[in-house]
Amino acid sequence: MKRIFIVLCILFGLVISGCQPKMNLFPDGTDPLLEQYIQGEGPYKVLVISVDGTISDSPKRGLLGYAPSLVQEVTSRLQLAAEDDRVKALVIRVDSPGGSVTASDVLYNEIERFKQKTGAKVVVSMMDVAASGGYYISLPADWIMAHPTSLTGSVGVIFIRPKVAGLMDKIGVSVEISKSGRNKDMGSPFKPDTAEQEQIIDTIISNYADRFQALVKKHRKISEKNLEKIFTAQVFSADGAKKVGLIDGIGYLPDAVSKACELAGIPEDSLVITYRREFYPDDTLYNTVTARTEPLALVNIDAGNLLPPKAGFHFLWFPAVQ
């Protein structure tokens, strides 16, 4: 509160003095993406983008506005890169426990389309967590590299929905529902599911799991014995993931950049770029912030980080959700 008061006093002083500086206290992600140089030189480019946090196609909601969704942030960068024929390789820095089934599938498809359209090589660099949907979006990569301390895997589906029927009984509150079919209220938080509804939900989960598993088989050469272990939806350390065939190598982000250059057939010291909305002096590969003004907003509350994921089907390792 003290910091907010000081900032407001400064702003008030500037206003009454007639000074009107250009300031972006409440950024909403509408500023255009700009190419930022990180390292290297030469005619060829390696683009580094980040997938951080829960994968969603919903805008990030704050107290005073909205910021672009993770899907929007990533796809806008892929679109910009696809228009630059100097971009020969893409490194995707993944630090995500996954997210909704649809949002994860959208990013998977967009990365696959980017590869087909540009012919660029794609390398994934996994950080803390690249599990479930975080692994799902990594599958199109030509090479998957995990940090030595990464967690990945969790190849499976989870259906999340609150249940408050018992609590409502205790406090004497009920909800009346009128419906046109017996399964119209399937998954309702206000009542237990029937045996038929549980079977329907299990079938949907199986359908999504089958798709996830089919893509793992498509993109990875893994023995049936290891697939059986992977499809229990457990998570693996980097060493464990390499042993079962989920990843190709273990290394750091600079190693992933070097591998991308090698696969693309370009010099190892090629130009490494990223897309941000503002310039950062002494920028590095590990900077994931898109606009320097975002942390300076007087109030920047994303209530989604304080609540469980919204009800629905998710490619998500739930314990790692922030």
Rank of each mutant, 00 (worst) to 15 (best):
V7T: 12
V7S: 11
L8V: 12
C9W: 00
I10P: 11
G18R: 11
C19V: 13
N24F: 00
L25K: 06
F26N: 15
F26R: 12
D31C: 00
P32G: 04
Q36R: 15
G40R: 03
E41T: 14
E41D: 14
G42M: 02
Y44C: 06
V48A: 08
S50K: 12
S50E: 12
S50P: 04
D52F: 10
P59C: 05
L64V: 02
G65W: 04
P68R: 08
P68K: 09
L70P: 07
V71C: 02
V74Q: 05
L78D: 07
A82H: 04
A82Y: 03
D84H: 04
D85I: 05
D85N: 15
V87E: 04
V94Q: 05
S96K: 09
G99N: 10
V101R: 13
T102L: 11
T102I: 07
S104R: 07
L107F: 08
K115S: 05
K115D: 01
T118H: 09
G119L: 14
A120T: 08
A130L: 01
S132Q: 06
S132I: 04
G133F: 05
L139S: 01
T149C: 06
L151Q: 10
K170M: 13
V175L: 14
I177S: 14
R182H: 07
R182E: 12
P189D: 02
K191A: 15
Q197R: 06
E198R: 07
I205W: 00
I205D: 00
Y208A: 01
L215P: 00
H219T: 02
S223H: 05
E224W: 07
E228Q: 15
F231A: 05
K242L: 15
K243C: 00
K243L: 08
G251K: 05
L253R: 02
V257K: 02
K259T: 09
K259W: 10
K259G: 03
I266C: 08
P267L: 07
S270E: 06
L271F: 10
I273Q: 03
I273S: 04
Y280A: 06
D283V: 09
D283Q: 10
T290S: 09
E294F: 05
A297Y: 01
A297I: 00
V299D: 02
V299M: 10
N300Y: 10
N300C: 01
D302S: 11
P308G: 04
P309D: 03
K310F: 13
K310S: 13
F313M: 02
F318Q: 10
V321Q: 03
Q322L: 00
